[in-house]
Design a protein around this nucleic acid. Structure first.
Lengths: 154, 154
DNA sequence: TATTGTTATACTCTATAACTATA
DNA sequence: TATAGTTATAGAGTATAACAATA
């Protein structure tokens, strides 16, 4: 039973939940030898490759920040740069086979860990949280930095 | 109305919400000349001062990481180190008057911005989110990195 | 001229390991 | 010996501004 003194407003609930999820995400990444940012990049690239500009927008990073992130992740052999057939100036970033394999494992394990966080809620309560936060995400046009389910590779 | 193709699971809902809240938090901090980490430090210190070891635990940082964070924040004139009366080896970190004033403004503005995120939910739905996430936070013993309401300074 | 991406530069953030000083 | 905190070092993340190459 939630006592009155445990009551909390939406704002604090959202901020503190974000803190919790970040910590779990970071710890999961760490155990796969990834930084959270590199893990996020891999997750974004799971369904398909993107141009640098697209990734900048999705991840909310300055162009040059992304250049560095892709440099380091490429150096680790997880992504590669390919010429963009649509624009000779551009490139696309794609997962390497090793990156795809690691992304799958990281994604799966991170899901497992985040799934445990609301273990104290009933199935119905979890559905309610998912539905309401889903609306918030939709209304605020949050990019798909973490897909719903492990995307199939066509 | 939420369409079937917009449906989302709890895991993705939590991760993507965290991404959204982080972005809003970071942008708010930025406009006050703060990094998110410095903003978080100020928020933690709003109700009272803490020893370095306590802050390490609350923020989930290695001791030396915190030393650097406090160094930089102190250099900006926002916090100060005082000897810990309980232990000659230790120190406590407290907000300076300027830090307290900035913390208040940053906290208030961040609350305002986060409060807008679930604007598409009814009052009852917001209460539901707050109550359910409050349980998740409680169950997972998330530290109070962001208080419920601007604490009074006794 | 506008766009795509990289370089140069300067900080901040973070961790590990080694250290100081005091229980 | 154990604890509180700092220093040394190394790397990652980020942004701004200036640049290159191509539309």
């Amino acid at each position: 039973m939630t006592k009155a003194e445990d009551a909390i407003g939406v704002v604090a609930a959202l901020v503190r939940t974000a803190f919790l999820v970040n910590a779990v995400y970071a710890e999961s990444a760490r155990e796969f030898g990834l930084t959270p940012q590199q893990g996020q990049l891999l997750c974004v690239l799971m369904p398909r490759s993107y141009a640098m500009g697209e990734l900048s927008t999705i991840l909310g990073l300055a162009k040059s920040s992304l250049t560095g992130l892709v440099d380091r992740t490429e150096r680790n052999g997880l992504v590669r740069r390919d010429p963009d057939p649509r624009d000779p100036r551009g490139i696309t970033v794609a997962l390497t086979p090793r990156g795809a394999e690691l992304a799958d494992r990281f994604y799966t394990e991170t899901c497992r860990r985040v799934d445990v966080l609301p273990a104290g809620l009933t199935g119905q309560e979890r559905d309610t949280v998912a539905r309401l936060l889903g609306r918030v995400i939709h209304d605020n046009e949050v990019p798909v930095v973490f897909a719903e389910s492990p995307p199939d590779h066509p």
